[in-house]
Design a protein around this nucleic acid. Structure first.
Length: 385
DNA sequence: AAGAATGAAAC
DNA sequence: GTTTCATTCTT
């Protein structure tokens, strides 16, 4: 591991660090897993200035010696792990970390809520450790562009960068959009196709209109017993389905409202994320599956999971691959589970959310990616306005 | 030094 | 609402 030098800061950031924590290296290790607290010393390194990340990583920006990095957010935690796992596995190595970030983003968005929560917990934990270590810490971002003669604003108006700036803005918007479920006209999608990350594919047919959220599938931990691998290995990807035989797919109460026009029917369901680095070049658009999990701010009791939409024409079997199964082959999908157990019910089964707080991987997920990632087409939504 | 992702926290 | 910065490491 390369150790980056701490570079003299361009401006000193004030961090109030009134007291030093009693600094256990364990804490450090937890917060910054990669830092080797051992090498660092013969003890007594004042952990105060010890924000390991500050010197080691930190985006190679100039930071003062005693800069204290922010605690990582859930996504950053996820991304780190994502990187690590793939490194370990020796999966197709992607050097360009911009690409890694894109893929991590895809994976993140496809993550189930319980899985996401896992990283939120991790982030919370790190945050709390951070707070222990730096009691008086408060985040102090650099100067904002608003004031001052745009001193530090990223130059965007030199027509060279403007487009990129816009693109970036839209990208950012897009995730907001996906979180908020606002419908977007197809045309704008076309105009703003995500470009490089994903195959430019026949977007003509658009997906999009978010289907009214019905209660989404959720795992029922009570029915499962073991902990399947979260991350499918890419190697296994070719073998299709050691999965439990899917029951006939019967969209119970979540039959999508079909918007007539160019709107195809979408069937909301669930999936697991690819915890792997897939080369975008391996994507193909012959099978059009829309992966679009919405994110919810709260872990709603009734609608805990985001939705995913499949285009019409996707074979039932394929769709079924995306449905959650328990490891014993029973349905994790609350509705399907209810249907199979009691014929009478079209009523919804409320997922047990408290189980989610502790059991992240209990339910076995049908792994759509075992179909091979190449069958999956992801499309970011773009939004203006 | 920039950039790619998302989210927290600060303006 | 908008900006920075947290992680990672190549380009």
């Amino acid at each position: 591991m390369p150790i980056h030098q701490a570079i003299p800061s361009r401006r000193s950031r004030r961090i109030s660090v009134p007291e030093l924590h009693d600094g256990s290296d364990e804490d450090l290790e937890l917060l910054y897993p990669d830092s080797d607290s051992e090498t660092q010393s013969t003890s007594s390194i004042p952990p105060v200035h010890a924000a390991p990340s500050a010197s080691r990583t930190a985006h190679s920006r100039r930071r003062s010696e005693d800069h204290i990095p922010r605690p990582p957010n859930p996504f950053i935690c996820f991304r780190s792990e994502y990187c690590e796992k793939n490194k370990l596995r020796g999966a197709a190595e992607i050097r360009d970390h911009r690409e890694v970030s894109r893929l991590a983003g895809v994976a993140w968005r496809a993550l189930s809520l319980p899985e996401k929560k896992k990283y939120e917990d991790i982030a919370r934990e790190k945050k709390s450790i951070h707070a222990q270590m730096y009691p008086g810490y408060s985040y102090t971002p650099g100067p904002r562009p608003g004031m001052k003669g745009q001193g530090k604003r990223r130059r965007v108006d030199d027509d060279g960068d403007y487009e990129e700036h816009v693109a970036k803005f839209k990208r950012r918007r897009s995730r907001v959009y996906s979180q908020q479920y606002k419908p977007e006209p197809v045309s704008s999608l076309l105009d703003n196709a995500p470009s490089s990350s994903f195959p430019s594919s026949p977007v003509e047919e658009s997906f999009l209109e978010p289907v009214p959220r019905s209660s989404a599938p959720s795992p029922d931990p009570r029915l499962s017993h073991n902990t399947p691998e979260l991350a499918p290995n890419s190697s296994a990807s070719s073998s299709v389905s050691p999965l439990p035989e899917p029951a006939p797919y019967t969209p119970l109460s979540f039959v999508p409202e079909i918007a007539s026009d160019d709107m195809d029917d979408f069937i909301p369901t669930a999936d697991i994320p690819p915890l792997d680095l897939y080369s975008p070049s391996s994507y193909s658009d012959d099978l059009e599956i829309k992966i679009d999990r919405s994110q919810h701010q709260a872990y709603s009791q009734t609608d805990p999971v985001g939705s995913q939409f499949f285009k019409t024409g996707v074979p039932n079997q394929t769709r079924d691959m995306f449905i959650w199964y328990n490891s014993d082959g029973t349905f994790a999908h609350p509705q399907l589970a209810a249907a199979s157990s009691s014929a009478s019910s079209s009523k919804q089964v409320e997922p047990q959310c408290d189980a989610w707080t502790t059991n992240y991987e209990e339910a076995s997920w049908a792994n759509p990616f075992e179909l091979s990632m190449s069958d999956i087409f992801h499309m970011d939504r773009m939004s203006e306005s």
